[in-house]
């Protein structure tokens, strides 16, 4: 009888502890939301965000940049365009590389529908032999890029657009209004594991005359090397 009571007591003790642990797990303090408050003092100085860039609804600038085939390219060169998938990318960034095939697939699928991929390398530099114009040309040939791959020499265009990382997509509509800014999909590491195709969804929305939702996403990427 006493033994029963002891076991009962132990069980009560045990289950009580179990509950306490679970409660603690749920109540774990995370970082403050909404940028702090309550004694926190978030600080953003000297950040890349100080750089001006496009916001949704802004009208993007056309440009004239050197393509890997040696010609100069402008958005206005694409006849009957319904929109433009402008993507800042580069040769060496692992994230840019992971998305190369997906960018090619995006172009193959949507260029015939009026939405071409326009890849721009903001990191092009003759002093870096992996990001030089010659290296871009080589990469485009190796991968057989079906889209233009442009050298943003002097980083004039990337600073106007405000791309912070590679790859960074700016989806423009027919009249060059910025309709979506962000990442290509929700899984950089594995195309097979993608659940949400942000850019494709945004294009489908434009095709229906709707505003993309979401129209802004974030991603880890290589920082654009602003000189």
């Amino acid at each position: 009888m006493r033994k029963m009571k002891l076991i009962q007591l132990a069980l009560i003790l045990f289950s009580g502890l179990f509950t306490a642990v679970n409660a603690q797990a749920q109540g774990r303090p995370g970082p403050p939301r909404g940028g702090g408050g309550g004694g926190h003092n978030p600080e953003q100085t000297e950040t890349l965000q100080d750089m001006k860039g496009y916001k949704i609804g802004d009208t993007a600038t056309d440009f004239r940049l050197k393509n890997v085939d040696g010609s100069l390219f402008s958005l206005s060169d694409i006849k009957n365009a319904k929109g433009y998938i402008v993507v800042f990318t580069c040769n060496e960034c692992p994230f840019a590389k992971m998305y190369e095939d997906r960018l090619m697939a995006l172009h193959e699928k949507y260029a015939p529908q009026g939405y071409s991929v326009i890849a721009i390398n903001p990191n092009v530099s003759e002093s870096n032999d992996r990001e030089s114009y010659a290296a871009m040309k080589k990469r485009a040939e190796e991968k057989k890029f079906p889209f233009v791959y442009l050298a943003d020499e002097g980083q004039k265009i990337v600073s106007q657009y405000g791309a912070l990382r590679t790859p960074h997509v700016f989806l423009l509509d027919q009249s060059l209004r910025v309709q979506y800014i962000g990442t290509i999909d929700d899984n950089s590491r594995s195309a097979e594991s993608v659940m949400v195709k942000y850019v494709e969804n945004a294009i489908e929305a434009l095709k229906k005359g709707e505003a993309p939702s979401p129209n802004f996403t974030k991603a880890i990427g290589c920082p654009v090397k602003l000189s």
């Binding site: 970082p31 939301r33 909404g34 940028g35 978030p42 953003q44 950040t47 890349l48 965000q49 912070l164 990382r165 974030k218 991603a219 880890i220 990427g221 920082p223 654009v224």
Partner: peptide
């Protein structure tokens, strides 16, 4: 951090 762009 809501102000973080994702760049490192």
């Amino acid at each position: 951090d809501p102000n973080w762009s994702g760049a490192i």
